[in-house]
Amino acid sequence: MTTQVLNRIPAFLIAFTLLASGCNPPGKPTPPQTSGRPEAVTDFNVLYAAHCAGCHGTDGTLGPAPPLNDPLFLKIVPDTELVRVVTEGRAGTSMAAFDQKKGGPLTTAQVKVLAEGLKTKWGKPGGPTDVPGYLLTPGGNVEDGAMMFAMACASCHGDKGQGGKSGELRVGAINDPAFLALSSNQVLRRFIITGRPDLGMPNFTEKTNRPHNFSTLTAKDVADLTSLLNSWRSPATK
């Protein structure tokens, strides 16, 4: 019995080796897509996972930083602005500069892959029309902003932005000086327009949790609201 088994071992080994090498066994390595240098990586998903996901979330939502997987945001943000912000970051906020020329870890080509890839990956046609522009506009009236705040925002954020409740959801203060110091007027304007769909904040036209007489915010309303929020900043950061 033992000798029979032993006699078969060589044949079994040879058969196994042939089988293992002949087809494609799981151990056979596949060539890497790049030469191994980090600056040679040009795959959007790889770059996003390594450099953006930490703040903007794995799939571009539910990170502490503004969601990038937001079709409305991607619809209105200019391409040049995306490239600029990834390149040099946003001063005063937690958005870091990512281009090597600005002290970041990525090459200009990689920054381009990221900035352009956002719209390819998450941009969607359709959505609301007559959306106010993304970039900050001069002007804006604080008093008008306060009136608009009472109608469009206060139901969740409280009369003076001190926070409140939206259903079961706790809504934190947005008049907090530290919060405002770390938020650019640009990002405030963006949230007024796009909301934070991943966290349940409605955009400029949605009626969720808003009074019946709420009507879609106009470009002037958005500018007024931004001015109001800016007026809440402590003097040093205005």
Binding site: C55, P64, I174, D176, A178
Partner: peptide, 16 residues
């Protein structure tokens, strides 16, 4: 992230 206030979200971003 889901239960964080705006200030806490800024704190989380700064933390990163």
């Amino acid at each position: 992230v889901k239960r964080a206030t705006p200030l806490e979200l800024q704190g989380a971003a700064a933390f990163q």
